[in-house]
């Protein structure tokens, strides 16, 4: 009796799963960054795309490095990330077909309103140098994400060898943007964030923007189809349809239309085309 019941339940659960799985016919997997998800951009964009094309986009939100690795393993059809050097390496390895610029926003340096390091309004290089010199708490993503890459590049530009001058003041958390902001809020530290995630972040505590508008804080997003020659399972047509749409005037207008509290988060720039 027990076994008859168990096999019935088993059959039921398998049926349930198959019915879930069969719904994925016209769908693609996009490996993207935590910033696009945490900022709510995809939540806004994808329903528009689906209504237009019927294609379901499944977003795996990871750091840029991890997202590119997911694509390298053939587990995604499209990558949508923001670390140009890493993206070009990905292309050079033959994992991507072609890279398109999609949009940009900018990074902002977040810090406590009290600004213990006294960097408010400074340019980013001075600000970082000062933070390091004063040993003010700084939260680093430490996860090979686009933001992490940008942060490391900024330290280099500021002439700080972060590998050598790491101390208790420099906290690498190895997590997403939101987690980094939560950590900074909890310990009243400085943190580099993309503006989109910052604007949609709810747990700001005592944090505010301390440095912004520096042209070195530019944050470019790109999109690439994973190379079907490397991974034949890549859904080439559907993936390309997504890329075509997002760089089309309509897709670009949709990106520009995403606002939080009246502030635009991302600025479309696909016209420039990419590498």
């Amino acid at each position: 009796m027990s076994f008859r019941f168990a096999s019935l339940a088993l059959a039921f659960s398998i049926t349930a799963l198959v019915s879930v799985a069969s719904a994925e016919e016209r769908s693609i997997v996009v490996a993207s960054t935590t910033s696009t998800q945490d900022s709510g951009l995809f939540g806004y964009l994808l329903p528009i795309f689906k209504a237009k094309t019927g294609i379901e986009v499944k977003v795996i939100a990871q750091g840029t490095g991890q997202a590119l690795d997911t694509a390298r393993r053939g587990d995604a059809d499209v990558v949508f990330v923001h670390a140009k050097a890493q993206e070009e390496k990905f292309l050079a390895e033959g994992f991507g077909v072609k890279r398109f610029d999609v949009m940009y926003n900018d990074f902002v340096l977040i810090g406590p309103k009290s600004d213990p390091a006294g960097v408010k309004g400074k340019d980013i290089e001075t600000a970082l140098k000062t933070i390091q010199a004063k040993g003010a708490p700084f939260v680093s993503r430490g996860d090979r994400s686009g933001t992490h890459s940008a942060e490391l590049a900024l330290w280099r530009q500021a002439g700080v060898d972060i590998g050598a001058s790491k101390g208790p003041w420099y906290r690498e958390i190895g997590q997403g943007m939101g987690a980094a902001l939560n950590t900074a809020a909890a310990m009243n530290g400085y943190v580099l964030s993309d503006r989109g995630t910052w604007l949609s972040f709810r747990n700001r505590g005592d944090l505010d923007i301390v440095v912004q508008g520096d042209k070195r804080l530019f944050n470019q997003y790109g999109v690439m189809l994973v190379n079907p020659a490397k991974h034949p399972t890549v859904k080439q047509q559907l993936g390309q349809a997504f890329i075509d749409w997002i760089i089309s005037p309509e897709g670009q207008a949709s990106i520009a239309g995403y606002k939080i509290d009246g502030q635009q988060l991302f600025f479309p720039d696909a016209e420039k085309k990419g590498s």
């Binding site: 994925e24 379901e56 795996i60 997403g176 987690a179 972040f201 747990n203 700001r204």
Partner: peptide, 24 residues
């Protein structure tokens, strides 16, 4: 699962996501 919205998002991954959004 990848925490895909509407497809593989569960209670626990949703909690993790909302936490990272600062939506405590």
């Amino acid at each position: 699962g990848g925490n895909i919205d509407g497809f593989t998002r569960t209670m626990t991954t949703a909690v993790a996501l909302e936490t990272s959004k600062g939506n405590l």
